[in-house]
């Protein structure tokens, strides 16, 4: 038996909304330690990795008697979650050898209980081993600032060059019709921690990435006030949105490099 009771259905809604356009079908791997999801886009350029820990406060109850994989169409899951109120408590339930995933939405005042079942799918997805490594540079910034930068620069070109150095981080685009550059300086003087831009730098990095994917990742902006960009030269960037009381959602994007 698998049963996970999440206090805020809005968190699950935001996760699925941020994934469903790039990642059509995905396996939720459930174990006693929590729920993980890894999936690649069809071109194998971008990857998402979701971790929701069972011992965090976001779950009111969590039970997973044996490891199970729940293969779900994310478009369908998005439709089901639209049936939940934002303040509803959502319970996910499945048997040990499941064909069906059940969603139960309880309203705050317990006056309305709704239940939806969806059929599970066999998804043959290729899992990649992602090593824990130290990155040359980790930029922490407000998530809405990163969203604005990606949106602004995508009007002029297809790829952004991210340049991390000891003064801060530069984002540059160069297209056929024009170019643009946004410089962010470290802002340690800002009062609120979530408004700060910080750059932890071991080595400077200059790397280009496709804006199409970065813009897609920023659909997760509402999950978190801050976003962390981890970069090392000639390796994929990690774009991480911490999820309070749950874990995190990470996106990996392969760089564009000189041919």
């Amino acid at each position: 038996m698998f049963e996970a009771k999440m206090l805020q259905s809005s968190v699950l809604k935001k996760i699925i909304e941020s994934l469903k356009d790039l990642f059509a079908d995905a396996n939720f791997d459930c174990s006693s330690s929590g729920i993980t999801l890894q999936d690649m886009d069809s071109s194998h350029v971008a990857l998402c990795y979701l971790k929701l820990r069972s011992d965090e406060e976001g779950f009111e109850d969590y039970r997973c008697d044996r490891n199970i994989t729940l293969g779900v169409n994310l478009g369908l899951m998005s439709k089901i979650l639209k049936c939940a109120g934002n303040d509803d408590v959502v319970t996910l339930r499945a048997e040990d050898e499941p064909n069906i995933l059940t969603f139960i939405f309880d309203s705050k005042n317990s006056e309305r209980v709704s239940k939806y079942d969806i059929k599970l799918m066999e998804i043959d997805s290729e899992l990649l081993g992602i090593p824990d490594t130290d990155y040359s540079c980790v930029v922490k910034m407000p998530s809405h600032e990163f969203q604005r930068i990606c949106s602004n620069l995508s009007q002029l070109g297809d790829s952004v060059t991210i340049d991390c150095h000891k003064e801060g981080v530069d984002f540059k685009v160069a297209g056929e019709q024009g170019s643009g550059a946004i410089k962010l300086k470290q802002t340690t003087s800002v009062d609120k921690e979530e408004d700060q831009v910080t750059v932890q730098l071991n080595e400077p990095v200059t790397q280009s990435f496709a804006l199409k994917f970065l813009c897609a990742f920023t659909k997760a902006t509402s999950l978190s006030d801050t976003v962390n960009l981890s970069l090392t030269q000639d390796t994929p960037v990690v774009v991480e949105y911490p999820i309070a009381q749950h874990g995190y959602l990470r996106f990996y994007l392969a760089p564009k490099i000189e041919e």
Binding site: H44, L127, S208, P236, Y252, A254, I257, E258
Partner: peptide, 14 residues
Amino acid sequence: VKGQTSLNSFFSKK
């Protein structure tokens, strides 16, 4: 010219 790489060239299959 900058070309798009694939994640498979950085991470190995599990």
